[in-house]
Design a protein around this nucleic acid. Sequence first.
DNA 1: TCTTGTCTTGCGGGATCCCGCATATTTTGC
DNA 2: GCAAAATATGCGGGATCCCGCAAGACAAGA
Lengths: 241, 241
Amino acid sequence: MEVLIVEDDPLHRSYLHDAVRAALPECDAVIEADNGRSGESLARQHRSEHIVMDLQMAERNGIEAARTIWKERPNTRILFWSNYADEAYVRGVSRIVPEGAAYGYVLKSASDNKLKLALRSIFMEAQCVIDREVRGMQQKSLGTVNGFTDVEYEILIDIALGLTDRTIARRHNLSLRSVQNRLQQLYEKLNIYQRMGDDSEEGRYNLRSRAVAVAVLRKLINYSALERAEIELNEWLGAKP
Amino acid sequence: MEVLIVEDDPLHRSYLHDAVRAALPECDAVIEADNGRSGESLARQHRSEHIVMDLQMAERNGIEAARTIWKERPNTRILFWSNYADEAYVRGVSRIVPEGAAYGYVLKSASDNKLKLALRSIFMEAQCVIDREVRGMQQKSLGTVNGFTDVEYEILIDIALGLTDRTIARRHNLSLRSVQNRLQQLYEKLNIYQRMGDDSEEGRYNLRSRAVAVAVLRKLINYSALERAEIELNEWLGAKP
DNA sequence: TCTTGTCTTGCGGGATCCCGCATATTTTGC
DNA sequence: GCAAAATATGCGGGATCCCGCAAGACAAGA
């Protein structure tokens, strides 16, 4: 059995290495990559079936790397090991995990033991392991209570990219008015309609920009989500005509 | 001599500890804090004069912590040790460093040697040490060529927060038209005016939102910058009437 | 002093955005 | 299969945004 580690911080990488060695005596070889790109090519080269991957890396982030790896070999088992449980990351991961694949999401702040347990569960038992806090995130985001529909999230991304209503409409094959409906819906959920100082009459925000701002502050959007969205936008722009 | 380490990642914290011990034999005591808030109180309590500080921490980020520490004792020497050289961070730091204070900015990807050299230079010689890449960032941002004026950066933050033109005008005591002038200026510098697909007629972005998007993608804005800006906005809102 | 350049302000107009109201169309639940 | 609920669409209008044009304010420099 062979494990591939993709992590750009040397300290964390060697820590992971030790943890893998300790948790998986049946593991013969540990390979390391220090960014997403080399992670992809090492995975392809070794036909890796067990990967531990950091999410935020400078060169090429973990979600992108995981996506191409899973596209080639959907049975690969990947444990994501990340600093944060931003909704943007959680959504990004759960959007790309293939049907029935075993994967995990563990925070770096978790204890040694938790990490080792997760390693065994995923790689040996093919069982999904999602950190408590991340799980909470998922439920909150996918649950209907305070969460956001895929549709709402989609349009949030679109305005975050700076698209006009008309462009969004064409991108999703909708009418202009429908786009604006969804926007209203989004503003409502993000609670944008509050006045700034509740004092005088004047005090509204620019709804569109404000929505993006609070989405960022609530970590519904982060840099890597925007980066991916921008790439997808460009693909669509290229394929349209 | 006593050194205070403020860093929320245990691995990095112990690495820093070792580095300080090795680089500064004249250091009797090393204190550690694992987030900005406790960092502040420890600094106050010990009247720390030598601090190594991470920038992105979950509880309370390094810039905020440094600001309050410097407000109380402007002669404190602080070495910022960060993963990234985002322009948002660099600007954030250089906005709060007091006149004549010795400080440093070293990337976590730097070599052991660089870190130790920086520690000695700042703490022993009271000399500023800025990482090459960060320095490059500074020049690019402060230089007139491709860089952004404080005025332009200011209005960028304002629209990123979701303010309306009118509110921005009142916040900076400007006329509506002047605000819009500055916006045009900003759009120009961010190169927003390109069409999306250069094919057909239709293809403009929503300039305002797009500006924020490319600013994020270019790392002129990041989460922590927006967070600080939001706090300042609320202070202004509270103090206005 | 006069010029030149930068910054500010006002006016006006076209484009876009936000949204209430009314009407299809689709989905959901029973 | 049908009613209820959500979703999509069209129309119209008020508010905001984007910006060209032009006139004043102010500082730097020849």
